[in-house]
Design a protein around this nucleic acid. Structure first.
Lengths: 231, 231
DNA sequence: CTCCCTACAGATGTACACAACTCTTGAAAC
DNA sequence: GTTTCAAGAGTTGTGTACATCTGTAGGGAG
């Protein structure tokens, strides 16, 4: 927004600026604004954020460690490709980790969190009524995930769950055009309703198991579609 | 060994040099050669490895992302401290992940791996016969861990298990002087014997459960010692 | 004697120039 | 026509000077 000409942006500390750029680039990759295979130019990014290549490289290295880009000397920084079969292991692990959240010092969500989940269900209904949108689905999914991880009290598990989510979130958006969008919206709404009921009971163990079930079924639907597309 | 005066080291690619420096620093931190609280100088490290600060910073940033050091602007790069109660969450997660290894596409170890484990048990006996050494215990433990993670077929789970191990390995070495070293050697040997039996049967599920049991008991022994020391 | 403030030493963060590497393009040899 | 090689453009990796920040030591006011 503000072109920094006035320097209206809070200068902030180096760490905060780095985290900000990281978050922006991660979201662009996860939302496919930077599609798989796209080449990211350090110089262009440096220009966009009004910094030199050095802090940009710091961010790109972090994204590489998390598997979202691949840096190749002399070639460039490439957004990694996502293939369902290559991410099968990540999905299997996500299933098991989801079931763990209730066992490892879970956090009881407060009333505000319950209201936010209710609002998400409402937004889901509004979308279903109007035109269905891929991007809207992805954003709702991400917002709901934010509520889920807030219930994970075990900090290492929370960080790992986040990482794995960002690694797999793209495959959903990528395959969505080939799938039944209404079915996906419906399944997602059902998941939120069921989890909301468990949240109201304070039963985080069940929240974890419900998550596990729905991640598994979502994965199975994608496998079926991918298998059908190959014929 | 070779002081690089002759340049005998294979020049290697940038990635390999970076990984090499990373591995060296990680081992030094995990072996307490760099004790918690120690300040690492980018300039000194750059001089030691015959590079500039730039690649050193790349490695230190990675170590920070994994929680082994803390970089503070204007202050320095400090080796993070390890406290048992702060690492309790990591331990609880490690327990559950250990139990998962048998369920997620485990890798059957070959005959050579079985022999290496037998050799580790033998080395453990030699240590028990001679003078007991903290460093020897840590090295045996790390070597055995290498055999364990080789059985983890799920790649993301393997990487995560490695990270969490490096985060907790220091606390063992730190508390070892206050503990019964002979008891620890004995328990460790027992773990290896039991797991070897499961490996011979090709029962990786049991390997995982045995790991879980022994990680848990090791943690409980440390908790008891730490509690006793506080009085 | 205590407290505060200022200057300084030393650390990490940033910018920029250059080195090293990859891929492409084109022409020349066969 | 095919192949090979060399030169060039474009990218990331590295080295280095400087900017920015922090903790401390020292001196002066009260």
């Amino acid at each position: 927004m503000t072109p920094s000409a006035t320097g209206a942006d809070p200068p902030a500390t180096a760490r905060e600026r780095s985290d900000r750029i990281y978050g922006i680039l991660r979201d662009r990759i996860c939302m496919l604004a930077y599609p798989p295979g796209m080449r990211l130019s350090e110089e262009e990014l440096a220009e966009e954020f009004n910094v030199s290549r050095t802090p940009v490289r710091r961010v790109l290295t972090r994204l590489e460690n998390e598997g979202l880009v691949s840096i190749v000397h002399g070639v460039g920084t490439l957004v990694t490709d996502v293939e369902l079969d290559e991410l099968a292991q990540v999905y299997h692990l996500r299933l098991e980790l989801a079931a763990l959240m209730g066992r490892l010092s879970p956090v009881q969500p407060d009333a505000a969190a319950v209201e936010r989940i209710e609002a998400l269900i409402e937004r889901c209904d509004e979308q279903s009524a109007g035109g269905l949108d891929h991007m809207a689905f992805a954003r709702l999914n991400m917002a709901f995930f934010a509520e889920i991880i807030a219930m994970i009290g075990n900090q290492p598990l929370r960080e790992i769950s986040e990482r794995l989510y960002y690694q797999t979130s793209r495959i959903v958006l990528k395959l969505l055009p080939t799938m039944n969008l209404q079915e996906e919206f419906s399944a997602f709404r059902q998941e939120m309703v069921e989890i909301l009921a468990a949240v109201r009971l304070g039963d985080i163990v069940s929240v974890g198991h419900l998550r596990r079930v729905h991640i598994s079924m979502s994965f199975q639907r994608m496998l079926r579609r991918a298998g059908a597309a190959h014929r």
